[in-house]
Design a protein around this nucleic acid. Structure first.
Length: 479
RNA sequence: GGCCUCGUAGCCAAGUGGCAAGGCAGAGGUCUGCAAAACCUUCACCACGGGUUCGAUUCCCGUCGAGGCCUCCA
């Protein structure tokens, strides 16, 4: 598989550090507020990467963190009058619930800064010991940017470029404006932990260097792991600094740490940046309320992960309809009278080819749509499409699309299939619906079309539509 | 100001130096009691101006426009 490496800017073959295994670290959120669709997009991208690699037989260790103590959390906590650590807990709990609803796999490890203080202090000490960090009289510890000749290699900047516009803030004890905090001494009332430099807390970037080391370095792999991912906006300074810290701790100038850096593009809303000030931020909760998990995922996968995507209501409606199209191709209708002529191996090969090329989910999706059309056509021709449907379900599953999650309900003695999952809508009034559907079936049998149509309107009022198939009526949530 | 992306049909969005994927929407048709679903047909002068080339949407330069980073950000 080839992936675009931000470090080199080139497509690079993914060669596992340890054969057969892949270690991935993805930067998660700082939970000072609810998560939004941008966070969802990011995790969907890496979720699909992990699913794909596992499907291809690799043993993947997937780590994604929470930065649960940080300036913004402290500020927000103070504003709301709540304990910042408690605020983080609440937002993490909400976000984890949303992640589950979005169909995101749980990472193998979800480390939190507050639970990794020991390893963070240890790494900070190593950086200081190796001459890349220094301690100030107030008990802050800074990273000495100028100590590292290749600082800026990820974001392709040099220290002179970066220095433009920076200056010392009053009261800072830095040697150089670009130096960044590894450890911050505690102010009164702030969350704090004991350290060799007094009470304090970790700086922003150190946690990821320390936690990826804890969970992804291995005896065979040494001081490196395979993939580090996150949003494009994290390239500088966050990821640049992670590299600097990890390499300083490892006492190396050559590239160690993550072998391949992946960055996903940003989600825009109606062509504009999502921002609090514009008031156009779509929260994960908003998104889950309006659109199905599959529609959100399909929307994300429809564009390449590195590109910025433009979230519009129309695009989401299109994604919703597109999900339905795939789900419809999985329905069993009629009985087959002929063997299948569909080449599922070819479909699978084209899917793999698309995914191998820098996670080409848009093209992989196109392969699925083509398969759906082929299935529908073959089904109409009376072919046995079960193998093709199984392939469609399998490949959609690799992308994390659940497609239909049909439930069959047995009510008033009549079996009726109710498809709910594809639209993420709960079906209510099941008994009334079942009764009306049964009555409509009778009306249709006696060619009482007026009554049949009237019942359709009544069902519409209950939020569902009824579709007649050779196997009987199917009830779906109304669009 | 510096670094870096991107500008493709009504909308979302792939992609390639040699007649432009896919989805949604639209139009016509088949099927259906009617619908729905499905199938068939149809729908693009690839921002603009130069250049390189036998040939560019694809490479290079410029213009305009959008976005990211340079301070917190998925």
């Amino acid at each position: 598989m080839k992936l675009r490496n931000t470090m080199s800017g080139e497509l690079e073959e993914l060669v596992p550090v340890v054969p057969g295994k892949i270690g991935i670290y993805v930067c998660g959120v700082t939970p000072y507020d609810s998560a939004h669709v941008g966070h969802a997009m990011s995790l969907i991208v890496y979720d699909v990467l992990v699913r794909y690699l596992r499907w291809r037989g690799l043993e993947v260790t997937y780590v994604s963190n929470y930065t649960d103590v940080d300036d913004k959390l402290i500020d927000r906590g103070a504003m709301l009058g709540v304990d910042p650590l408690e605020l983080a807990n609440q937002n993490i709990a909400q976000w984890e619930d949303e992640q589950t609803r979005l169909g995101l796999m749980k990472p193998d490890v979800r480390p939190r800064v507050t639970q990794e203080i020991g390893p963070i202090i240890a790494m900070t000490q190593e950086i200081v010991d190796h001459g890349y960090g220094y301690v100030t009289p107030s008990g802050d510890v800074y990273y000495r940017v100028r100590a590292k000749a290749d600082y800026g290699k990820l974001s392709h900047r040099n220290i002179e470029d970066l220095r433009t516009g920076t200056r010392f803030e009053p009261g800072e004890e830095k040697e150089f404006p670009l130096d960044f905090a590894l450890w911050k001494s505690a102010k009164p009332g702030e969350p704090a932990w004991d350290s060799p430099w007094g009470k304090g807390r970790p700086g922003w970037h150190i946690e990821c260097s320390a936690m990826s080391r804890t969970y992804l370095y291995s005896a065979e792999g040494g001081e490196r792991f395979d993939i580090h991912g996150g949003g494009l906006d994290l390239i500088f300074p966050h990821h640049e600094n992670e590299i600097a810290q990890a390499e300083a701790a490892a006492h190396g100038e050559g590239q160690v740490f993550a072998r391949l850096w992946m960055h996903n593009g940003m989600v825009q809303r109606d062509g504009e940046k999502m921002s609090k000030s514009i008031g156009n931020v779509v929260s994960a909760a908003d998104a889950l309320e309006r659109w199905s998990p599959d529609a959100i995922r399909l929307y994300v996968l429809n564009s390449h992960y590195r590109a910025a995507t433009n979230l519009t209501d129309e695009a989401m409606a299109a994604a919703t309809a597109a999900v339905r199209r795939l789900a419809n191709a999985l329905e069993v209708r009629g009985s087959a009278t002929a063997a299948s002529t569909i080449d599922v191996a070819d479909t699978r090969a084209r899917f793999v080819e698309a995914m191998e090329n820098d996670l080409g989910a848009p093209q992989a999706l196109a392969v699925l749509f083509e398969l759906a059309r082929t299935i529908n056509r073959a089904r109409d021709a009376g072919e046995d499409v079960r193998d093709a449907q199984a392939m469609l379900r399998e490949l959609a599953g690799v992308l994390g699309l659940a497609l239909s999650r049909d439930v069959t309900v047995q009510l008033t003695g009549q079996e009726m299939r109710v498809e709910a999952g594809t639209l993420g809508v709960e079906i209510t009034h099941q008994e009334a619906i079942a009764r009306l559907v049964a009555e409509r079936t009778e009306a249709r049998a006696s060619k009482n079309w007026a009554r049949a149509d009237e019942i359709r309107d009544e069902l519409d009022a209950l939020g569902v539509m009824v579709e007649d198939t050779p196997q009987g009526p199917v009830v779906r949530p109304r669009r």
